[in-house]
Simulated scan of single mutants.
Amino acid sequence: MKVLDLLCSADHRFEGWFASEDDFQDQLERGLVQCPMCGSASVRKGLSAPRLNLKSSTASETAPRGEAASAAHADSGQRGTVAAQVAAPSQLPAELQEAWLRVARHVIANTENVGDRFASEARRMHYGDAPERGIRGQATAQETAELMEEGIEVMPFVLPDSLKETLQ
């Protein structure tokens, strides 16, 4: 199994698992590799290193990263806090992407896909002609503006095709 760090044209970072390098190239050429954030099929490999499981006897190498960092800066007082503050922004994009994916999966699991009937179904629910429930679908910008003018709350939310289908 080959695990690759991948990036899309918008620099969203994600991981892909492939049987081999040839399998990755084949799927890439067929447009099967898509960014889970934006759905872009323009994907490239990022820098990645193989994971090596080597045994070590030193505390700093065997301790989890947080414990090793705390131990290294235990005597330095304020320097440990500064190091943690500097490291945090680099984690922010990955954490935001993870949060967005959780929200997207929640939306998919808890709403009904009404497709291009979204505007008409939202109106039917608003005026009491259909039972209220969570729905999702497609609407044009004009349809969305008209719904909002009628007092119907809508929220544009882009869902990549890769999230709409079950992974095998």
Rank of each mutant, 00 (worst) to 15 (best):
T144K: 10
R123N: 06
T81N: 11
P156E: 03
S56M: 06
Q34N: 10
V107F: 05
A109C: 01
W17L: 10
Q168H: 01
A74C: 10
M148I: 06
V107T: 04
A145P: 02
A49K: 13
H106R: 03
Q91M: 13
H12E: 05
A94R: 14
R124Q: 13
D75T: 13
S56L: 06
G39S: 05
A145R: 14
D22I: 10
M1P: 07
R65H: 09
Q27S: 11
S57I: 12
R65K: 10
N113T: 03
E165N: 04
H12P: 09
E146D: 15
P64K: 05
H106S: 04
E132Q: 09
E121G: 03
N110S: 13
R13W: 13
E15G: 00
Q168Y: 02
M148S: 13
A109Y: 02
L54K: 10
N110L: 07
S162M: 04
C35F: 01
I108E: 01
V154Q: 08
F18L: 02
M125T: 06
T166P: 01
A19Y: 08
R123I: 12
F157M: 02
I108R: 06
S120M: 10
L4P: 02
C38Y: 08
N53I: 12
R117M: 08
G39N: 05
G16E: 04
V114M: 04
G46Y: 08
E21G: 08
R105G: 07
Q91V: 07
C8K: 02
G39C: 05
D129M: 11
L92V: 14
P64T: 03
V86E: 10
T81S: 11
M155N: 08
C38H: 09
G115A: 05
G128M: 01
S40W: 12
S42Y: 10
Q138E: 13
L32T: 00
G134H: 05
A19Q: 13
Q168S: 00
R133S: 12
H12Y: 07
S70R: 15
R123K: 14
L32I: 07
N110K: 09
L101N: 01
F18K: 03
A41P: 08
A72H: 15
A99E: 02
P50A: 12
G66H: 14
G115M: 06
E121N: 03
M125L: 07
G80V: 11
A87T: 06
A88G: 06
R105L: 13
G115K: 04
F157Q: 01
D129Q: 15
E112T: 09
L54C: 02
E149L: 05
Y127P: 02
L47Q: 12
T166E: 04
F14W: 04
D75W: 08
T58S: 15
E146V: 12
P93W: 09
T62D: 00
L32P: 00
W100R: 12
Q97H: 14
V154K: 13
L4Q: 01
A99K: 03
E165H: 03
R124V: 00
